[in-house]
């Protein structure tokens, strides 16, 4: 047996070595699998690119919670989006940002335990049109976004589906895409309708402005009761933006905005700033 190994060349030895380690990994995997039954899953609420969200009940306190399960936690250790989300949520403590209760591992998969709210902004806008409440919601969202920007964190996935409403107070969720500001970042973030023009043109040195663009779109959606730009592709989206916003006083010529208050329009205009757009067009 020994002679065979000596005669074989280095690459074969390397392959044997690798297979042995893989077998070791598999054995460890099955030895250390354990059951954790603190939370009982009731139903599936949503599914994203990074994981599945369940509605679940805590056995000990009988509280309803939301469980966020991450896919791909087997091959690469803890997934990077999970790492970023947990560390960022641990750092943030604000009434309008969701609180992370704990993180647990069930069947070798990482789960986040968070408070459960059953209504998001899109659903809320279908039934509630009271001006006082809407103003309050806009104000609170702005405060929450200011709070995270103060900590050098960009949310990068602001959209009405990621804003939950409870008792007419907004709660910001889903920090899976958010990260600390850095000189180089991926351009493919945010849902298409709320994506800023600098992201649409594949720029990777953006900053807080992309969150402000999404916020502007959300505020306009609250006011108009429908999304401002509904593009079907990146080029279509850019075209829509170019058609609606032409010049600094675009809102005066737009019939959609006729019924709105002046201050309100100013707010939208500040959020949807034109600086980047002019660079693209010229």
């Amino acid at each position: 047996m020994q002679i065979v190994i000596i005669n074989s060349n280095a690459t074969e030895l390397y392959v044997i070595h690798k297979i042995l380690y893989q077998i070791k990994d598999i054995i460890y995997y099955y030895m250390s699998a354990s059951e954790n039954v603190r939370y009982i899953k009731i139903q599936k609420i949503g599914e994203g690119a990074y994981g599945i969200i369940y509605k679940a009940q805590d056995v000990q306190t009988e509280e309803i919670v939301a469980l966020k399960k991450f896919k791909l936690s087997d091959n690469e250790g803890v997934p990077s989006c999970a790492l970023r989300e947990i560390s960022i949520l641990n750092q943030l403590n604000h009434p309008n940002i969701i609180k992370l209760i704990s993180q647990i591992i069930i069947n070798k998969k990482l789960h986040l335990v968070m408070n459960y709210y059953d209504m998001d902004l899109t659903e809320y806008l279908k039934f509630n049109h009271e001006e006082f409440h809407l103003k309050n919601i806009i104000y609170k969202i702005l405060l929450a976004v200011e709070f995270i920007h103060n900590r050098k964190i960009i949310h990068r996935d602001l959209q009405p589906n990621n804003i939950l409403i409870t008792n007419n107070e907004p709660v910001l969720i889903d920090f899976g895409l958010s990260r600390v500001l850095s000189p180089n970042m991926t351009p493919g973030v945010t849902q298409l309708w709320y994506r800023a023009p600098e992201l649409l043109s594949n720029c990777n040195t953006y900053d807080y402005a992309i969150d402000m663009w999404s916020l502007g779109c959300i505020i306009a959606e609250i006011a108009l009761n429908k999304p401002l730009f509904m593009g079907s592709s990146e080029i279509h989206q850019l075209l829509l933006i170019k058609n609606i916003i032409n010049g600094n006083e675009w809102f005066l010529h737009n019939s959609q905005f006729a019924k709105l208050n002046n201050l309100f329009i100013d707010l939208i205009n500040v959020c949807i700033s034109l600086e980047f757009l002019e660079i693209i067009i010229s």
Binding site: H17, Y21, G77, V78, L83, R84, S87, Q91
Partner: peptide
């Protein structure tokens, strides 16, 4: 090839749990 994937993942879990996931 000094360490296996299992060793690295175990260490990673250990580090993250010791720091209570406060890596930011």
């Amino acid at each position: 090839n000094k360490f296996s994937a299992h060793q690295i993942k175990k260490m990673e879990k250990d580090i993250l749990e010791t720091l209570n996931y406060n890596t930011n």
